[in-house]
């Protein structure tokens, strides 16, 4: 991703900023111009809570450039409590404890050591929600 693209998407990566459709009231992430649910104009902005659950996961051993230092890592499809699904890495987790349906919450982490132009990229990952007292 270019520096311009990283700058444009910063609110999405740092705070899961999406939208609530004014027509059908469904949550949308990331923001779109057209609501994917009812095809009306989307908006206004709405920040997701960051809470969700694991819909699916995979531990990846073959990884692309920019992610070699983190190999292997666990990717997940996380179903946010507002409804949208996001693709993100799981963090602060051991292999044994990952399971479908596990409650997770968003945290900000380093996504890549450096991008094509040397920048460090931060964004959302998800970690297990610990019960009080854990």
């Amino acid at each position: 991703m270019s520096i311009a693209s990283l700058w444009r998407t910063r609110q999405q990566r740092y705070s899961l900023e999406g939208e609530i459709c004014p027509e059908c009231r469904q949550a949308i992430f990331p923001p779109r111009d057209v609501c994917p649910h009812c095809s009306e104009a989307a908006g206004p902005l709405h920040t997701m809570s960051g809470r969700g659950e694991v819909y699916s996961y995979t531990k990846m051993f073959n990884v692309p450039n920019g992610f070699l230092a983190q190999r292997p890592y666990t990717m997940a499809l996380v179903k946010l409590e507002e409804g949208p699904m996001v693709t993100a890495q799981l963090t602060d987790i051991s292999d044994e404890e990952v399971e479908i349906g596990m409650p997770v919450e968003m945290v900000t982490r380093k996504l890549r050591e450096e991008g094509d132009s040397g920048e460090i990229v931060y964004g959302y990952k998800f970690r297990p929600v610990f019960a009080a007292g854990d």
Binding site: M1, Y57, T58, P64, F67, M75, Q89
Partner: peptide, 21 residues
């Protein structure tokens, strides 16, 4: 690119997410 690949998922990874579920 901005919401899948940027997070380190590959095509094998996407298919693995489908297969696991």
């Amino acid at each position: 690119a901005e919401y899948e690949s940027a997070h380190g998922v590959t095509f094998v990874g996407l298919n693995a997410l489908i297969m696991q579920r």
